[in-house]
């Protein structure tokens, strides 16, 4: 296998087909994404720079991406304002967050 090229952006795909192009540094804040993209684990995700989720829908994944950037932006600041989460999304987002380890 040729050594995978690490790109600046990676693609996250929801099960209903929505694709999100996210900065690799932000995406890797989620433990699950980080591990699946890690070249040393040798997964297909790492080679293709693309992670598909069979259990997360587009709306939730969009919120996850928003959170990843929010987290990256506030990594060093104190007393960070909480991110707005629509209540109806909470449960699905919670399960996704648990799965993604974020």
């Amino acid at each position: 296998m040729s050594s995978p090229t690490t790109t600046e952006y990676v693609t996250l795909v929801s099960y209903d087909g929505y694709e999100f192009k996210v900065l690799r540094s932000a995406a890797c804040l989620a433990g699950t994404i980080k591990r699946s993209l890690d070249p040393s684990s040798g997964f297909r995700e790492g080679a293709e720079n693309r992670v598909s989720f069979t259990n997360i829908n587009g709306v939730t994944l969009e919120k996850v991406c928003e959170y990843l950037y929010y987290n990256q932006k506030h990594a060093e600041s104190k007393d960070v304002p909480d991110m707005e989460i629509p209540p109806e999304l909470c449960l699905e987002l919670l399960i996704a967050a648990d799965y993604l380890d974020v």
Binding site: M83, C90, L91, L94
Partner: peptide
Amino acid sequence: TRGAKPLQQLCIEKLANHSEDIDDFGE
């Protein structure tokens, strides 16, 4: 309080605020 809260924590806190509106936690 340095950095952002974990997403799980954010969700859980939000859920607790809307405890009356939840029907089921599911799996």
